[in-house]
Structure formats: C-alpha cells, structure tokens
C-alpha cells in the first residue's frame, strides 16, 4: 500500500502497552534556501546527511531535478525526499508528454503537495521547489503535510532560522544573478556554521528564463580537510627485522627448451607476402 506496511502495527502497539520502549523519532538536520532574482531563481543546500547525531555523508546531494528547468531542494527524511521527487518527476514528464507543453512549476507544486497530503505527513519530505517556466521564475516551499508557501526568499530545515536571519537582513528586491547566488551561499553558510545538523559544502542551482538550469555542485567548500601537520607515511625499512625468508609464491615449472635453428638460403632476399 504505497510503500507502507502496517503488518507490525498491532504487535508494536501491544509491546508498547507491555512497557517495551518505543523508538523515538530521529531529528533530521538540513539547511536549504531559495531566492528569486531578476529573470531567474536560485536554490541552494548544504551537503551533510545525518543519522541521528552521526554524520552519514559529508557530501550528499540535496538538490533534485524535477524537469530540465525545475529543481527541488529537499529537507527531512532523505529517502522520502529522493523517492518523492523521483516519482513526481516521472509524473511531470508524463504530464508534459500528454499536454505537449513544458511543465510548469505550479504543476510540479500541486502534484507534490497532493501526494504529500495523501500520506498525511508520514512521508517526511520538506521541499523548496523552484524553476523557470513560460510564466516566469517561481519559488515555492512545501511541508510534509502538504501545505505550501510562496515567497521571494525561503528557507527550510533545521538550519532555516540561521539562513532566514541572513536572508531577512541582506535580501533586497530586484537583485542580480550574482547577488542572489552570493546571498544564498551566505545563508547556507550561516546554517553550516550555526546549525549542528548542517555542514560541509554549498550546492547551488541557478535557473534563468530561457536558459538551461546550471547546477553548481560544491559551489563553496568552506570545510575542506586541511593537510595534516605530520605525515604518517613511514619510510621503507623503518621496522627492523632479525631474519628474512622469501618463499616464492609462483612455483617454477620445468620445461624443455627446443633448439631453434634458422636456416638461411644465402644472398637471396626473403619473399614477403603481398
């Protein structure tokens, strides 16, 4: 039933009533932002994936392609974000082929929110949808229960407060592309530094009207691993040894050598096949 199995629900409920501990919900950490500028829209995300308090992936991808000109940044449960965006991306393509038009961002938004509403928040995907369609650049955000927001600048995830502080203080209307990219990168960096659930690098996707979307993977890498002060590569012969015994891994095979004799016919040149 839509990927959900309720087989163990009754059993788990019984065990809970008996006093067995219930697994607690795992808090997820992410910072994603989106910002509109004159003639386009830009979205950005950090690249840390967490499993509880453990960093599972230092450079994961949180920007998903819905259609060539619509991209989506996902926060919340990573697998849910990934699979929901893949499914809606397929539906969007089917819809585009059916209507014979380029898909619109509102179409993508409606498909996503209706799907998420159906699952009543049990599919934990919090998304920022952005893109350019014939109606212009668009920016929306969707929560797991299916509610949506529209805005010139948006942020989601556990680092959304830090990112929003940056966006609120530095955003201005009618920005240029570079200004919007810098603002988004700065907002994500605010999340990277101030939110423990976010970290590593900044991914960015820029969508401009009548231009192909450009994905800047690792647009900023503020957490590059520095070179260790001490090298742990030991020179050859560091460890002393008392005796040495070399055992040949390949056993020599006895074989006979046949003498090869080349007979020359004298001064005549050898014939070469044509």
């Amino acid at each position: 039933m839509g990927g959900f199995s309720f087989d163990n629900y009754q059993r788990n409920k019984f065990l809970t009533a008996k006093g067995y501990p219930v697994p607690t919900a795992t808090a997820t950490g992410t910072t994603i932002v989106g910002c509109r500028f004159d003639g386009g829209v830009v979205i950005a995300a950090d690249t840390r994936a967490t499993e509880g308090e453990i960093v599972a992936d230092k450079n994961c991808e949180k920007l998903h392609r819905m259609s060539p000109n619509i991209w989506c940044a996902g926060a919340g449960t990573a697998a849910d974000c990934e699979m929901v965006t893949q499914l809606i991306s397929s539906n969007l393509e089917l819809h585009a082929m059916s209507t014979g038009r380029a898909p619109r961002v509102v179409t993508c938004l409606t498909m996503l929110k209706q799907h998420l509403f159906k699952y009543q928040g049990h599919v934990g995907a919090y998304l920022i949808v952005a893109g350019c369609d014939p109606t212009g650049p668009k920016l929306f955000s969707i929560h797991a229960h299916g509610s949506t927001d529209v805005g010139y600048y948006l942020s989601l995830g556990s680092g959304s407060m830090a990112a929003m502080a940056t966006l609120e203080s530095k955003w201005k209307s009618s920005m240029t592309k570079q200004e919007a990219m810098d603002l988004c990168a700065e907002a994500i960096e605010a999340g990277i530094w101030n939110d423990l659930g976010s970290g590593s690098n900044v991914d960015m996707c820029v969508m401009e009207v009548n231009k192909p979307a450009v994905l800047h993977r690792n647009y900023r890498t503020p957490n590059e691993r520095s070179i260790k002060q001490k090298s742990y590569v030991f020179p050859r012969g560091t460890t002393a040894y008392l005796n040495e015994k070399v055992k040949p891994m390949i056993k020599p095979v006895a074989y006979d050598i046949f003498e090869e004799t080349v007979t020359s016919t004298g001064g005549e040149q050898m014939e070469i096949d044509g």
């Binding site: 039933m1 959900f4 309720f6 629900y9 009754q10 409920k13 159906k118 699952y119 009543q120 049990h122």
Partner: peptide
Amino acid sequence: PTEGPHPLQSHLKNW
C-alpha cells in the same frame, strides 16, 4: 480504537 489499525491504513485504502 486502541486495538484498531493504524489511521493511515484506512485513509490510504479509501483514498
């Protein structure tokens, strides 16, 4: 109902 199925189950089934 305490012994009933998960609320999402019937929700998805009848959607």
